[in-house]
Design a protein around this nucleic acid. Sequence first.
DNA 1: TGTTAATAGTTAACGACGTGAACTAAATGA
DNA 2: TCATTTAGTTCACGTCGTTAACTATTAACA
Lengths: 154, 154
Amino acid sequence: MNKDQVTELIHRYTKVSFIVKRMAESLIKDQLSDALTNGQFYMLRYIQEQGTCTSSNLAEAFFVNKSAITAIISRLKDKGLINRVRNEDDRRVVYLTLSEKGKNLFTETEMRIHLLLENFITEFNEDEISAFITTYEKLSTILVDLKKNQQEEL
Amino acid sequence: MNKDQVTELIHRYTKVSFIVKRMAESLIKDQLSDALTNGQFYMLRYIQEQGTCTSSNLAEAFFVNKSAITAIISRLKDKGLINRVRNEDDRRVVYLTLSEKGKNLFTETEMRIHLLLENFITEFNEDEISAFITTYEKLSTILVDLKKNQQEEL
DNA sequence: TGTTAATAGTTAACGACGTGAACTAAATGA
DNA sequence: TCATTTAGTTCACGTCGTTAACTATTAACA
């Protein structure tokens, strides 16, 4: 690849990424009315996948400040979607788990997102979409590594 | 593709998309200190590409409310990055253009983003990244169409 | 022509999510 | 023991969304 080709690809990528991001936020919000925001959904998913986790885990996983996590968790707690249990072995630590209500809302939300996406994922060739996601994951890994390196430099 | 495969792909996609979004916001912000936010950068780019445009154009292009555009434009105006000229033929309309300062900052920002991305885009095979972006663009088109259909239903 | 509609843009009140800095409480370790 | 580290919270702030109500201007039509 020469320089011009790289520039062209970057331009095409950045152009699309902003709209895809907006659409992902917007379409799902339209579908889900006032249930969960994007961020809240991903937090719930992480907690569910891990079974239990801490604020620090979330902050590290999503590369955001701990205070941001505290705010999101606090909203989820207000909605009764998660439980917070202090660890008696190390009383600084608070374990987060999904409440029954949280599990249900998460599952319902996930289902609706899948329904929305299923409608058009079939418009892609299987190989195409599969390769796309694989590259996307690779991109994610690279970006994450880059971010981690930046953080370590501090 | 059977249902399980589709579910699996959607899961992989949504899992990565959130992190990629975060990284795109975060890495570039780290690079650019307190110059431009992501949203501001894309607004400037649109105005530059179009030469001139209106708030309504931006709102339509980025699928956001006009009030959100007003707020962003107002910040860009405060920074002296854009000019606003009222159209004398239709005095409701305000044309937006980049100021010299805006052009310079945009170009500089774009260059830094490209430098950041160039560092790892070469880690991909040319065919792979090219196919990836093509599919990404297709995805974007589909999402945009879906959004437009939803809007028309109102 | 004069009243009504639509359109472009702004403003205000609000919410979600991000930041950094200062803080509490608890654990660690020389 | 006393300084340091760690987990988490709180506060003040900024950005970017939303809806609703508003101004000003243009367009439409009876």
